[in-house]
């Protein structure tokens, strides 16, 4: 039950060209900003959007020209799309009925699925009587009941409030681990992707920009989007040993030695701010101006402009001490040991 696909969909103002592979039992997350083409990729896999080029292969069988009803690909849609005129149990039984299972047996199996989702007492309810979390689980049961060879999830948690989201994510994770087929999950939330998926595929503007597991993506982002997602300052530059030239002529000193095109990344918490130029200063010191101040958890996120743009996290106490406000000039420092560099080569995974 392995997936191998290259999805090419051309639109007048947009081209999607994404290669995807997933092993049996593997969960792959398509992560990207809105409008990156994630949902289009999912719809192309399901057969709801025609491919202009490429292929979809599941267990060695070409599916490009197979209509959706014969693909055996289960889909959990973003707003679930539970049939409003059917009860929860009949929604789950729908796919079984379509595959020729007699009504009584389909109902029985559907009840079993609802029991597994801890929803047995909701089986007679219509979708509009269910809470968001319950509807999500019914949608998951409906997709899994047909024993799909590939399971697709489109922003499975996006419609839920923060509290329900936490529970549902754990619940969903457990079911994905039990699913023997491959799973492709579309999300714009890095936390969902990292908690649920074995491997991440980052998509921007219809293209794959980075793939890898959560550690590789969070540790070594390759685009500004990924860096922002994982909360790192990211620069592209040219390394000569421990010195990396970024943004024209600005030099950053890094812990590891590299040569050629590299990325340099460091977390906002590694940036320290001073009112005066610090004496005996660390290697990376530059004058900056505060562009914005925002609350981030129990810290303040300071956006800096200067020779390089950067984000810094400081405690509210330190901010008061320094009198930090928009427009104020400060000195920023980063210890060389906090700045990591890695090759920027063209490989994406």
């Amino acid at each position: 039950m392995s997936l191998d696909a290259r999805l090419v969909v051309r639109r007048p103002d947009f081209t999607l060209d994404v290669s995807l592979a997933a092993a049996p039992g593997e969960v792959v997350a398509l992560l990207g900003p809105n409008g990156a083409g994630k949902t289009t990729a999912l719809r192309a896999l399901a057969g709801l959007v025609a491919l202009d080029d490429g292929h979809v292969e599941l267990d060695g069988r070409r599916l490009d020209r197979v209509p959706p009803e014969h693909r055996r690909i289960g889909v959990v849609f973003q707003d679930y799309l539970l049939f409003p005129h059917l009860s929860a149990v009949d929604n789950v039984a729908f796919g079984l009925r379509c595959r020729g299972v007699p009504r009584a047996r389909a109902r029985e199996q559907a009840r079993e699925w609802l029991r597994r989702m801890a929803l047995e007492d909701q089986s007679g309810k219509r979708p509009r009587q269910l809470s968001g979390g319950q509807a999500q689980r019914v949608a998951l049961a409906r997709a899994l009941a047909t024993e799909p060879r590939l399971l697709l999830l489109d922003e499975p948690l996006a419609a839920l409030d923060a509290r329900t989201r936490l529970e549902t994510r754990a619940h969903l994770g457990a079911h994905l681990r039990d699913h023997h087929g491959a799973t492709v999950l579309v999300t714009h939330d890095p936390l969902d992707a990292m908690m649920l998926a074995d491997r991440l595929v980052v998509v921007e503007d219809g293209r794959v920009v980075q793939t890898g597991d959560a550690a590789a993506i969070t540790g070594r982002p390759r685009t500004d989007y990924v860096a922002r997602l994982v909360g790192l300052n990211l620069y592209r530059g040219t390394a000569d040993g421990h010195t990396v030239r970024v943004a024209g002529d600005f030099a950053l000193t890094t812990a590891s030695a590299q040569h050629g095109a590299v990325f340099v990344a460091f977390p906002p918490s590694a940036v320290a701010l001073y009112a005066e130029r610090p004496a005996g200063s660390p290697r990376n010191t530059w004058p900056a101006e505060i562009a914005a101040v925002a609350r981030q958890g129990d810290r303040l996120r300071i956006e800096l402009t200067g020779p390089i743009p950067a984000a810094a996290d400081v405690t509210p106490a330190a901010a008061v001490d320094l009198g930090l406000a928009t427009g104020r000039r400060v000195w920023a420092t980063v210890k060389a040991t906090e700045a990591t560099s890695y090759p920027a080569g063209t490989d994406v995974g």
């Binding site: 399901a46 057969g47 709801l48 959706p68 055996r72 799309l81 049939f83 729908f94 796919g95 379509c98």
Partner: peptide, 29 residues
């Protein structure tokens, strides 16, 4: 009527006639 319900039915294995009979028609009742 939201045609995406029909797409959802198709991914569950419903052919076009079944989609019409069991999803479209009840929706537009």
């Amino acid at each position: 009527a939201d045609a995406r319900y029909e797409e959802a039915a198709a991914t569950l294995g419903a052919g076009r006639w079944t989609v019409f009979r069991r999803v479209t028609l009840p929706l537009i009742g």
